[in-house]
Design a protein around this nucleic acid. Structure first.
Lengths: 338, 338
DNA sequence: TTGAAAGCGCTAACAT
DNA sequence: ATGTTAGCGCTTTCAA
């Protein structure tokens, strides 16, 4: 089946193909009568614009590359959901890439984006990303770039993040407000600002409330239910007294909850537990898990909105790139309801 | 900054630009020396192929359109995760679109895909999709199409699904095997085969085990925790005896669990509960929720693999489209452990 | 208000 | 083993 082009429409109507092109693009200089005729013929013939040809000529694809570590994590799929929704409303499409938390994979993805001539790139970097020649390359080519959640410090790029420091502070302060005093914090070895910021928030809250910061009560390991469980168990085994746990992430907190239950320790009466991320399971477990909500869908929507703004400003005086910092939200549930 | 093209490389090396193109595409007729020189120069100049131009000329974009109802549902994001992973390994990129469960939105997405000249489309239809002129259009244009999970019956299209009938049967049989006899089934009004098949599986299992099928025990409503809760409560209020519930979906089952707990009814001793989908929360709640696993990531991987096969066969004798039916997996946990 | 013509950067058929 | 040439289907400038 031969594909219909604007030339076919032009031939049918005995006008030039550039008039057809203008009519389809709603060019102001074309008469309404011509536009109407062109559109009708286009529909009748089943014409569909060839965006590839249009992109080659115009230099714009109306495609945004979105690269995330892993779409199976609900955090990222929620953000991408938000990005796609808003971009879609604004006539942009999303080219999706998963970096799988590997820097080389990420570099390949960005290379693909550049080759595909995307109009812009939205990224959340991998744990491994240290050097950033590929990100620098994006800038050098003048392609709009935006980070969300995990941003590269030092690179002047607009970003949408949440205030992880504040989140860590809020979680810890909430525990303190509920009367807990010996608060264990479980973090990770991963060297990402989002995690170290939460730790700093924890420390600041303790400091502000004149509670001691004990390095023994700051544990680092894998982000997993198992590590949360093992950590709580190890504290119990060693007889290290504690009356609350702030885990850097909900699954870890869930592990703590399971270890406590196994050891017949009452939550929230004897020990309070709070996580971070507000995963779907938090409201369903018993006791319901307190957490910090990251406004994931909103983060995606804000990222898309900011991005559209950047696209419009393209070429304009740069200035300091905008940085949107979303508020973390405390979700207090039973696990801290002393 | 001027963009580098193959002509720039050709000029630097005093060869023709088509030799450069061949060298970059590893054409067998080009000498190794030339290839080496071309590649080095390309790297040195920071050349990046313009895929848009290549696509316009070759007619192939190496882009697959993927359209799903909503990426925020873990089912779909898991499948898309699997699809992207496998497609990526095979040099295909994913153009992502959310239909938001609206048929007209879905039609627009497909239109965009056609305009973007994607090499193929992978779709899971909306609840609303009844007529399918846009899907028929895809076929008419000879663009490979594949459905996963939610397929359109009657359209001869390859698909990857799970055996929902068998899943419904397994869930019900499991309850029966555990000694439950009065089994309520909560389903939905949504007229999708995946849901009616589960209902049929429920009926068949009852029949095979000589248990009565009582329409009063088959309830239809929203897919939500609230409806599960309300349904269980209503059975209790009416004094309708039951000793098990098979919910068509995990959140509904979770609602049932909550209603039973509120009414001090012991699970699994007095009433057994099983859901469907094996959502992440199932293993974390108390009692842990039994469910039917749908192998979501695998579904995406199989969809991508089958799709690659279809792409290769393009133009070959058609025959009956392949249909991969994945086995549902019983995940027996505490909520049915009588 | 419309037409003519150039060209975006490649691929691929044909020629040497 | 390499060069020449003709488009792919549009957008956009210039001309009428």
């Amino acid at each position: 089946m031969k594909r219909i082009t604007i030339e076919d429409i032009a031939a049918k109507l005995n006008i030039s193909f550039s008039t057809v092109a203008r009519a389809l693009n709603d060019h102001p200089a074309i008469s309404d009568a011509t536009k109407k005729a062109v559109r009708e013929t286009a529909t009748r013939l089943g014409y569909r614009q060839n965006k590839v040809a249009a992109s080659l000529r115009s230099g714009r694809t109306h495609i945004i590359g979105v690269i995330v570590p892993n779409l199976q994590l609900s955090f990222f799929s929620s953000v991408v959901h938000g990005i796609e929704r808003v971009m879609n409303e604004n006539e942009y499409n999303i080219l999706l890439y998963q970096s799988n938390e590997q820097a080389d994979h990420e570099a390949r993805g960005i290379d693909t984006f550049l080759q595909s001539r995307v109009d812009g790139i939205i990224a959340s970097i991998t744990q491994e990303t240290r050097e950033m020649p590929h990100f620098a390359e994006i800038r050098k080519r003048g392609i709009p770039l935006l980070f969300f959640d995990r941003a590269i410090n030092g690179l002047e790029v607009p970003a949408v993040v949440i205030d992880d420091f504040k989140g860590g502070y809020m979680a810890t302060k909430h525990l303190i407000d509920q009367g807990y005093k010996r608060i264990v914090h479980i973090n990770t070895h991963q060297d990402l600002a989002i995690f170290t910021d939460r730790l700093e928030g924890y420390k600041a809250a303790l400091r502000d409330h004149h509670l001691p910061i004990d390095e023994q009560y700051i544990v680092r390991g894998a982000l997993s239910l198992e590590f949360g469980d093992a950590t709580a168990q190890s504290f119990l085994d060693q007889g290290l007294a504690f009356d609350a746990v702030f885990a850097v992430e909900d699954y870890t907190a869930m592990g703590v909850l399971q270890a406590l239950k196994r050891n017949k320790i009452k939550v929230p009466k004897e020990v309070g537990v709070i996580g971070f991320a507000n995963e779907a399971f938090g409201s369903l477990v018993t006791p319901a898990l307190s957490s910090i909500d990251q406004q994931t869908v909103r983060m995606g929507e804000e990222a898309a909105a900011l991005f559209l703004k950047v696209l419009q400003q393209k070429g304009k005086p740069a200035g300091t790139p905008e940085r949107i910092v979303l508020e973390p939200l405390l979700v207090a549930r039973d696990s801290t309801a002393r």
